[in-house]
Design a protein around this nucleic acid. Structure first.
Lengths: 212, 212, 212, 212
DNA sequence: TATGAATGAGACTTCATTCAT
DNA sequence: AATGAATGAAGTCTCATTCAT
């Protein structure tokens, strides 16, 4: 697991890639993938077009890098919460909080991510968009399994299919987090995640108060 | 409000417009606005490109017509339910059912609509996308006002801000309806809307059972 | 075999295609395929770049059309001579004359054709260059079979392999015809073809004078 | 004419140049000048792009060096044969053999050379391609003068213009030698040059058997 | 001296839109 | 009114060449 020390060249390249991704992210997030040209990305990142192609295979590769990064971050956070310690109820709470945190830290990238996992997906040749959707689906299944476990433990109601409960929580989270991002300045994920907890846990899951 | 009777020519033109919209809808829904060319729309609709420009001002106008149509339909259905008869609780139930019905009937168009109202929006010059978002927001406010009314009437819990509750319901609905559309064959909005009711009403709203 | 009468539109398109081919031919012949841009062809043909793409699938398609045309013309002329009437000797003479005639009439196109069948070939994706080479090879085999027939008939010497004789004649012809084209103004294929006849028939074939 | 002894550095540089030329030759021969990038040459030669530019002025200069080298080799061999000892007939035979030998030893380079001297030439800015063609023409004239000398000596027929005979021999040679290179595995210049001798000498030149 | 990242001109191609027929 | 050929701006990507390290 020890990382080889990177040469100065390599470190520079990584930094440049981050700068390009930063610029591309803002543009994609504001105008959509197809409405942003390589020249625009180059200008915003203050590189030449040719340099973009030294750093990335092509335009799609830039997009992929952005999405994969946020997908990794999200997956890590989600798995950390859902597979962490504590009873299912606590893990659900941790999951809600983790999602809010990821959104707070990666606001613009999350918009792209959500546009690929919910609703309209572009259709890329490499099909990496479907890979991302597949990864997202696995998180949802993990969430469902934790809900089911909670049901068996008597912590959560079990009269609804765990898949449906997972989808409900996911929908609630998505709606609130998107709302957070819309409001420009006053983005308060911690408030919204409290509401999600309230609505979802007190309601949908009908927690047995003697156990919670 | 009386409509002038349309000439044969005008009726024909309306029918042609519908055929073009039908073709464009399928293409946009499958590949996304920017990945579809006017020539492709013309071929699918079995018109010439020139005729498309006689029927619509430009490509964006075709898109707008699709979106406005589904937005109208959705708004009509939503207002009909939320401003209809019955107590707030019954109106919420009617709203959920109405949403499910609209989705069932306009499945592909709804995908485009949702991509414009949640998550990523293209940015069109004419700014009609923001108009649509504004209309959507007004529905949400109407929903919130009904929820508030229900709270004042003691039918629904009032410890959460009605805007948040509205957003929660909206998010739940969106998630389930999108899921309906994904599953290709087995699209069952009536099942999903039952789940939404269950999750939202029994849970989030903590209906006073003596009154419901 | 009756041809449908072409619409005015179709006739116009064919004429336009010919104009483009004419322009492209001159440019390709002077500078080589890879040194000529679509913009240059468009300018020389006095069309816009877009129109070029309405008339031809892509740049390679323009090249292909030029080559295929001259290849067809050459093949027709060659087969007509070699499979025509007369004894093998007369057919060889007709072949030599036919080649000279084709070159005389299609001088610039022949240069492209020869660059594809002898010497350096570009490598096109569609592999049509190999098709053209294959067609050329078949003509050579046909020529060889006529030479062999002449040998069996006692008209031509048979101590050399017919394939080699065919190649010899082909090489002679190629060298003289290329020379014709080089000299700009004074291109005299009829003189050169006389020399080829003289050199090849009197010499290589050692015609039995009593039979010729 | 005495060469200064080269420094180690200079000798090294010459060796590097040869390695680059070797790599470039293979690529140019396989794909054509315009389809090969400097980066590809650099990779095949296992140098950096920058080093290529230290060794050669530019891409064209690499091409020129390849061509000039084979042109020199060919010219040396041809002059050696044609200006050597023996009667004209023997010198022609030596010339044919020399050509076969050069081809055998420089097969890929010859393809490039022939594409520049027969048929299609690229048009380089510096016009060195025309220089090469000029040099080639001088060899042809030298060949013609030997043929003429043979004619005057009664060894060779003189009813045809020596230039035409020279061209005929050149065309025969070119055709057979190109054929040798095409056949991949079984390349037998010595066989083909025998055929050329047979066809050309026995036939075209109608050697007076009493003198040969 | 050797390297290879940076550059930007220029290549091919697509496409929304217009307009003569 | 209906057509679809013509247009040229704009997009993605490549590549010869330079130059800081």
């Amino acid at each position: 697991m020890t990382e080889k020390p990177l040469s100065r060249r390599q470190r520079e390249m990584l930094r440049y890639r981050q700068e390009v991704l930063q610029a591309a992210l803002q543009l994609f997030s504001a105008r959509g993938y197809d409405r942003v040209s390589m020249r625009q990305i180059a200008e915003k990142a203050e590189f030449s077009v040719g340099t973009l192609y030294n750093l990335f295979k092509n335009k799609e590769d830039i997009y992929r890098a952005i999405i994969v990064e946020v997908a990794d971050r999200f997956e890590t956070a989600a798995r950390g919460a859902l597979q962490g310690s504590g009873n299912p109820l606590e893990r659900i709470r941790a999951f809600i909080a983790a999602c809010a945190r990821v959104v707070e830290e990666n606001s613009p990238a999350i918009r792209l991510y959500l546009s690929l996992t919910r609703g309209m997906a572009f259709h890329f040749k490499a099909g990496f968009d479907e890979e991302v959707q597949e990864r997202d689906r696995r998180i949802l299944q993990l969430l469902a399994s934790v809900l089911e476990e909670g049901g068996r433990a008597g912590l959560l109601r079990y009269d609804l299919h765990p898949d449906h409960l997972a989808l409900a929580l996911d929908g609630l989270l998505g709606a609130f987090l998107l709302r957070c991002m819309e409001e420009g300045a006053g983005c308060r994920p911690e408030i919204y995640s409290a509401v999600v907890e309230e609505v979802f846990l007190k309601g949908a899951l009908a927690v047995d108060p003697s156990k919670a």
